[in-house]
């Protein structure tokens, strides 16, 4: 079987990435999207009954052949280093461990969402989610 899979993240920018959006953590605390820290995601996942945080290392970033404002980001996910590719708008933000929001085109992210953002690079470790093993 193929060792990689492809996931398409929503192709329009969701409203919750706009600066000032109110995000509810798993313990009920409310924070603005631009104020979220790595610990907020980790602690929320610890409380969650079915979700766990996985480390997704950026292995490759390339332009999409379908449209110039899309990028294909290839991740190595979790301890099994499963290869996952996602096609996203270049301004789509990912949360990098210990760093914060990052996108393929931070200038566009800041312009469209006013979300402070750095450049997503190969080697960055992003926060992603998988289902907990329910045994």
């Amino acid at each position: 079987p193929p060792s990689s899979s492809s996931t398409v993240v929503p192709t329009s920018l969701p409203p919750y990435f706009i600066k000032g959006s109110i995000i509810q953590l798993a313990d009920g605390e409310l924070k603005r999207v631009e104020d979220l820290k790595t610990e907020d995601f980790i602690q929320s996942a610890e409380i969650s009954s079915d979700l766990k945080i996985d480390s997704s290392t950026v292995e490759r970033i390339e332009g999409s052949i379908s449209a110039s404002n899309f990028a294909v980001v290839q991740f190595s996910v979790g301890e099994h280093r499963a290869q996952v590719s996602v096609e996203v708008l270049v301004e789509y933000p990912f949360f990098v461990f210990g760093q914060g929001w990052s996108s393929c085109c931070p200038d566009r992210t800041t312009q469209l969402l006013e979300l402070p953002c750095t450049k997503l690079s190969v080697g960055d470790v992003c926060i992603s989610l998988t289902l907990k093993n329910l045994r």
Binding site: T7, V9, I23, A26, L129
Partner: peptide
């Protein structure tokens, strides 16, 4: 009386891409 519009609140996990790797075992 006009009720004030509530501000939308989004769950934390909607901000994180859900990457489900293929399982080989």
């Amino acid at each position: 009386n006009v009720e004030p519009r509530s501000v939308p609140v989004f769950p934390w996990h909607s901000l994180v891409p859900f990457l489900a790797p293929t399982q080989s075992d």
